[in-house]
């Protein structure tokens, strides 16, 4: 794994998300260093997905979000990929009626370098050969695991610097989960900074270097992955001990 550099790529300060009158995220602060792989753990409804959506500007939030030193709170979501920030949303969010090749084309939509895009498609297909076999099928026909692979591959087509992943293991068979996490680790090894939201704490802490634990809209614990794995509270709440 890459050694984290000292400058934070992503910084959230007092982030709050409200749905009508209900607060889903109640003032959380965290940071992700360049080259790091950090996870955000927590139970259902803790506010993890809302946090990620706020980071990707899919929903409005108060507080401050700084990405690569720039405040992005007010930007529309479609300019973020240009800056290297990509989100693989919860439930994968692939375009079911587009073909696999077209989904990948969409991942590189903001890029103009045709030759490089074609090379990246080949690179993704080498990494995920199952997708190559079904290049021209509509993505809705893929299995859940393959859809997750496609969603990650599509995000990589944007050549992100920071990849936000929302529950990549959700609804997948254990063997598929292992494969998805292999892919995520190889992406991290290429130097992409990763912020991973997961309910499967054991799995997440094995691949991340640091983690935050979120409970009812607040971050309650922040520590290194080995310490979190040893933490009695984490073990009790998320590892079933």
């Amino acid at each position: 794994m890459n050694k984290p550099e000292s400058s934070p790529l992503l910084d959230a300060l007092n982030l709050e998300v409200h749905y009508g009158g209900i607060a889903a995220v109640k003032g959380v602060s965290f940071s992700v260093m360049q080259g790091e792989m950090v996870c955000l753990l927590g139970a259902n409804g803790a506010g993890k997905t809302s946090t990620l959506k706020a980071l990707a500007r899919m929903i409005n939030s108060t507080g401050e979000i700084r990405y690569a030193g720039e405040k992005i709170n007010e930007l529309p979501s479609h300019v973020l990929i240009n800056k290297g920030l990509a989100l693989v949303p919860e439930g994968r969010g692939i375009f079911a009626r587009l073909t696999i090749a077209e989904n990948l084309t969409m991942g590189a939509y903001h890029r103009q370098d045709k030759a490089e895009i074609a090379a990246d498609v080949e690179r993704i297909f080498t990494m995920l050969p199952r997708l190559k076999e079904r290049e021209n099928q509509v993505a809705g026909t893929l299995s859940g695991g393959e859809q997750q692979m496609l969603a990650i591959g599509r995000a990589l087509m944007g050549r992100p610097k920071l990849l936000l992943l929302d529950e990549p293991s959700m609804g997948l068979a254990p063997i598929m989960v292992a494969k998805v996490f292999e892919v995520i680790q190889s992406v991290a090894a290429q130097g992409v900074t990763i912020f991973l939201v997961e309910q499967n704490a054991l799995l997440a802490l094995k691949v991340c270097s640091r983690g935050y634990v979120m409970e009812s809209g607040k971050i309650t614990i922040s520590d290194t992955a080995p310490n979190l794995l040893a933490d009695a509270r984490v073990r009790a709440a998320y590892l079933g001990e």
Binding site: A56, P76, S77, H78, L80, I81, G93, F95, M106
Partner: peptide, 8 residues
């Protein structure tokens, strides 16, 4: 919204 994430 997902298309927006792709930069559309």
């Amino acid at each position: 919204r997902i298309a927006g994430l792709m930069g559309v």
